[in-house]
């Protein structure tokens, strides 16, 4: 049976015309057997698109749209992107840098970052020692409002914490002076009352000391902020009123 079958099937062969038509078809479909080039070009184009997306995405991600200044002395500034993630942490003076190094806040949401920061040993000890802590926020209105709402949650829980909106125009001056913008606004308030105070003086002072000086110069009673108070509301006989720029309503 095997031989019979082989003999029969041997007679079934592809015609030369069919082979030629198939080859012509392949030539047509592969543009002369050159499809590799368009495919390679496709990969290059796809890679270029990915690169552009990564660059755009990276640019969007790493562009700060808001900043949070947390000041006790130490002072820290957190830059936040449009996705509410912390993209940079900068400590001011040695103690601020030490605090920045001791807590890992990178790429956390600002909510998580504030929680971690407030739970840090340095901040807990400062608040236990009756130091004053201010949280100052700059950024577009929507994001600033949201961050301040979170900051107020902390302020509501402690009489030594206040929060408020900062003046974006002063951020550059603050950095030139080597101060966080939160502390710089407190310094401006104090300097308005006592022109002899320098930026270097402010750099070495705690927020408590600055506030005490302001209270002394305005005749207000030095002491604690009211629980949940906002920095710079400028009312109440000069009580903890830094006169900061963008007020938090």
């Amino acid at each position: 049976m095997r031989e019979q079958l082989k003999e029969a099937l041997d007679q079934v062969q592809a015609s030369q015309e069919m082979k030629e038509r198939t080859l012509a078809y392949l030539d047509r479909r592969t543009h002369g057997f050159r499809r590799a080039a368009p495919r390679a070009a496709g990969w290059v184009l796809a890679a270029a698109c990915c690169l552009v997306l990564m660059l755009v995405g990276g640019t969007l991600y790493f562009t700060p749209t808001a900043a949070i200044s947390v000041d006790v002395n130490p002072s820290l500034e957190l830059e936040v992107n449009r996705f509410d993630r912390v993209i940079s942490v900068k400590g001011y003076q040695e103690d601020g840098q030490a605090l920045a190094d001791s807590v890992d806040l990178g790429h956390l949401s600002y909510t998580e970052a504030l929680e971690r920061l407030m739970a840090s040993e340095t901040i807990v000890n400062c608040l236990a020692n009756e130091e004053l802590l201010s949280i100052t926020v700059v950024g577009d209105e929507t994001q600033r409002t949201a961050i301040l709402a979170e900051a107020e949650r902390w302020a509501a829980g402690s009489e030594n914490i206040c929060c408020g909106a900062g003046n974006p125009e002063e951020v550059g001056h603050a950095h030139e002076a080597g101060l966080s913008f939160g502390k710089y606004q407190a310094f401006l308030e104090l300097q308005a009352l006592d022109p002899s105070v320098t930026e270097e003086d402010a750099a070495g002072m705690t927020m408590r000391q600055i506030q005490d000086r302001i209270d002394a110069l305005t005749g207000g009673s030095a002491g604690q902020w009211t629980s949940g108070d906002t920095c710079g509301n400028g009312t109440g006989g000069g009580h903890h009123g830094y006169g900061w720029g963008g007020r938090h309503e």
Partner: peptide, 23 residues
């Protein structure tokens, strides 16, 4: 992608096999 020479060789070598299976 394979070259024209490879395609020609494959057609010469396997066209009959393909033809029989088609039948």
């Amino acid at each position: 992608m394979r070259s024209e020479q490879e395609a020609c060789r494959a057609i010469e070598r396997y066209a009959d096999t393909v033809r029989r299976l088609c039948m």
